[in-house]
């Protein structure tokens, strides 16, 4: 195949502007985008900067934007992505570019993974011959650990473009791996940490991560698992964001009492009178248009007592 690779080139320290450079590339059928990049190094510019390591879909190192969509260069066949004989290769979005296709993966991933303190803190001493655990309990851990930090979930994340400090689905998936490891004994402390700002409660659960994960780990669901576990253990927020716990408690109390949500009460109990004062312009506008239901006045739904019984049973079980 004869193709043109349009490759993002930029050295931010050189004071020049980023540009897409075109390179003619000649590849056999079945060749990958990584093969094309390596050929550019061989034939045109040995200094083209990009990262790649295992070259066959195991290590997650060569994540790039290929024809405007995040992919691993080493397992993306050129024939499948080329449009009109062209392949555009760029760094992923929402990240600092260091040079050409090399971006700051330390900021995107590694620092965040260290932040979740992802090492096991065993609950009990290991018995002779190893821990005895039903395989069904380890299967989700293996699935989560099949994550190879390609960063595609973070690249597709709804929050990171607005807040690069958000821990993100990859790091939270790593957190899942230890929180749910049957050998770990530190779930409560971990969830407290994960509950702090930029942790799991900052996730908007938009399910973009599920769409972007090439390994089918469904990171959004793993974040839900963490949050559900936090609720179960009564660790509903970190110390710096107590309103998150108040929000949950108020939401649950309202549904438990009446079967449905008392939004006025939710606002009041989440923010308290002090913060509501700060949000007064918003509240006033809402009130004037009848959009702020008066707290505590809403009626019980018929059958609400059955909803309450569901809450009771779940509580008794955990």
């Amino acid at each position: 195949m004869e193709l043109i690779f349009k490759v993002y080139r930029h050295d931010p320290t050189a004071g020049t502007k980023p540009a897409l450079e075109s390179y003619p590339v000649s590849l056999p059928d079945g060749a990958t985008v990584l093969d094309g990049l390596l050929q550019i190094r061989d034939r045109h510019d040995g200094g083209l900067a990009f990262r790649a390591a295992c070259g066959r879909g195991f290590c997650g190192e060569c994540t790039l934007r290929i024809n405007r969509s995040g992919k691993l260069a080493c397992i993306t066949r050129v024939a499948q992505v080329a449009k009109d004989g062209e392949v555009t290769v760029e760094p992923v979005r929402n990240i600092t570019v260091l040079k050409d296709l090399v971006y700051d993966v330390d900021e995107l991933l590694w620092q965040k993974i260290a932040w979740v303190e992802p090492w096991l803190r065993p609950a009990t001493a290991q018995p002779d011959g190893g821990y005895v655990i039903p395989d069904a309990e380890l299967e989700p851990i293996r699935k989560a650990m099949s994550c190879y930090y390609c960063g595609l979930c973070d690249e597709g994340c709804s929050v990171i473009p607005f807040d690069r400090r958000f821990s993100g689905p990859a790091a939270l998936t790593k957190a899942f791996r230890v929180v749910f490891d049957p050998r770990d004994g530190a779930a409560r402390e971990r969830l407290k940490r994960l509950g702090e700002p930029r942790g799991m409660w900052d996730c908007v659960h938009c399910y973009e991560a599920n769409e972007h994960c090439p390994r089918g780990i469904d990171p959004t669901d793993r974040i839900f698992d963490l949050r559900d576990k936090a609720v179960e253990l009564g660790v509903k927020s970190g110390t710096a964001n107590p309103q998150v716990a108040r929000h949950y408690d108020s939401f649950a109390a309202s549904v438990r009492q009446s079967g449905w949500l008392d939004e006025g009460r939710l606002a009041l109990e989440t923010w308290g009178l002090g913060r509501l004062g700060e949000l007064l312009p918003m509240a006033w506008r809402a009130l004037r248009r009848g959009k702020l239901p008066v707290p505590y006045l809403h009626r019980k739904r018929p059958g609400a007592e059955w909803i309450r019984r569901i809450f009771d049973k779940v509580e008794k079980r955990s």
Binding site: D11, T13, A14, R41, D45, G46, G47, L48, A49, F50, L98, K99, D100, V102
Partner: peptide
């Protein structure tokens, strides 16, 4: 080595 600077010089 053709080199445009030493940073990330893959060559």
């Amino acid at each position: 080595v053709t080199a445009s600077g030493r940073r990330w010089n893959s060559a």
